[in-house]
Amino acid sequence: MLTVEERHEIEEELKRYPDRHAVTIDALKIVQRRRGWVTDEALRDVADFLGVSAHDLDGVATFYNLIYRQPVGRHVILVCDSVSCWIRRYDRIREALGTRLGIGFGETTSDGRFTMLPIVCLGACDHAPVLMIDQDLHRDVTPDGVEEILAKYD
């Protein structure tokens, strides 16, 4: 079941578009923001609410990189693996995170605190290497600086 708040938020989005199908992505993000990821049940509820088929909606959900159809940790670390960060040795950041947290790309720490994922160019290439944790952009990241960044997220 969608909560009252979720329905309300989706209704607000509907005002900005001429038809219900247009808000599929917004609706999935609304659900994901509250629950961390989009379960099969949530997917069906959103589909029913918008009057689209669940199959169609899953096609949309799986197309977009930032809609998670699998559980993720409390915080999601998005590490830029695109070309300018690659030139500026993003691999060292990835290794430092891996050593510190014991996870690689696509994995979640056993305490459920972090999931680490690759992300395409974050549009901050003049400050490479960069990463995002939740809503925050971290620029000019160094392997030694990783510890201090992680400490902000519990």
Binding site: S82, V83, S84, V120, C121, G123, A124, C125, D126
Partner: peptide
């Protein structure tokens, strides 16, 4: 959308 790698 600005997702072209190297574009900021």
């Amino acid at each position: 959308d600005e997702m072209e790698p190297g574009t900021f």
